[in-house]
């Protein structure tokens, strides 16, 4: 296996173009190093993009938050800008693994690895985040919601690199929340549930809603039926119950050592309720 450490995005893209499916991009290596050790992935060349320092930033720019793909989870968690304006995002980052993992893992790496249990994808999708993908020819943008295709698969082409996540500034009276169920602190999510709630001027009714589940299907799942149950209505016991039921219905969890399918589906309901309630609080 070869190893390359390009200094620029252009250089990295041309390496990818040259080697095609034989190449794998590595950044923090949190996920990929395990797959390599287990021989689940056997690339011809590893393209290590950690040296591309221009991809490591967080900036507040013209009503949107721009996050470089090489931003570490820990930076995300600690960044004053994120903590101040997007506190739900730094709280979601806080729940990723342990400090060592958060110091190694990158936002881009986590999203491109496309483990459905990612803690970042659900809240980012709920908040309407967009990913910028680049190759030697140029760049394209894709809604994060459409980025994930299947277990560990994304719409990224062989020659593309995810370079940036853009998060639109949220409208007034909007709250976002991410709730996670796991048996232990620091575990991957057994259930992840993110919610976005925007209230009307009187803070009586929900005028915009986003519900996204993690870890209970091949990709993060946006539950439109749950959003419908909230949109245009007061968030009360009845609409909450409907939203939770829709989320449970949309999920397809698998039985494993963290719980049976049935238990997990029930927890989808509990976590969805919690996420919506928290988002509502933040919006009020």
């Amino acid at each position: 296996m070869e190893y390359a450490r390009p200094a620029t995005v252009e250089e990295a893209c041309s390496l990818l173009a040259l080697h095609g499916e034989g190449a794998r991009v590595i950044a923090g290596g949190v996920a990929l190093s395990i797959l390599l050790k287990q021989r689940l992935v056997e690339p011809d060349i590893l393209v290590d993009i950690e040296g591309i320092h221009s991809l490591r930033y967080i900036s507040d720019d013209a009503n949107e938050l721009r996050i470089g793909a090489l931003c570490k989870h820990r930076e995300f968690e600690k960044n004053p800008l994120v903590r101040d304006k997007f506190p739900w995002l730094s709280r979601a980052a806080e729940r990723i693994g342990c400090v060592q993992v958060r110091n190694a893992g990158t936002v881009g790496g986590s999203l491109c690895h496309a483990d459905p249990a990612s803690d970042l994808a659900p809240p980012l999708i709920a908040a309407g985040a967009e990913a910028t993908l680049r190759n030697s020819q140029g760049e394209r943008k894709v809604l994060l919601e459409n980025f994930f295709i299947d277990y560990y698969q994304t719409s990224l082409s062989e020659d593309e690199i995810l370079t940036e996540i853009r998060l639109p500034r949220l409208s007034a009276r909007t709250g976002v929340s991410y709730e996670k169920y796991a048996m232990r602190e620091g575990d991957m999510a057994t259930i992840g549930a993110a919610a976005l709630v925007t209230l009307d001027d009187d803070k009586q009714r929900c005028i915009e809603a986003g519900i996204v589940l993690g870890a209970v299907g091949p990709t993060p799942i946006r539950v439109k039926e749950a959003e419908e149950a909230l949109r245009g209505r007061a968030v009360n016991e009845s609409s909450l119950r409907k939203a939770a039921a829709a989320a449970m219905e949309a999920s397809s969890p698998l039985s494993d050592s963290s719980g049976s399918e049935q238990y997990k589906r029930e927890m989808v309901g509990v976590m969805t309720r919690r996420a919506v309630s928290r988002a509502l609080q933040a919006a009020s």
Partner: peptide, 27 residues
């Protein structure tokens, strides 16, 4: 509270530190 080796038709499905849960310092 959490530790258990689980087999599925004789094959261990708690074969990693992710699936076999020991308490961490935070638990």
């Amino acid at each position: 509270l959490m530790e258990e080796l689980v087999w599925d038709y004789g094959r261990v499905i708690t074969g990693s530190a992710i699936d076999y849960k020991i308490p961490s310092s935070q638990d």
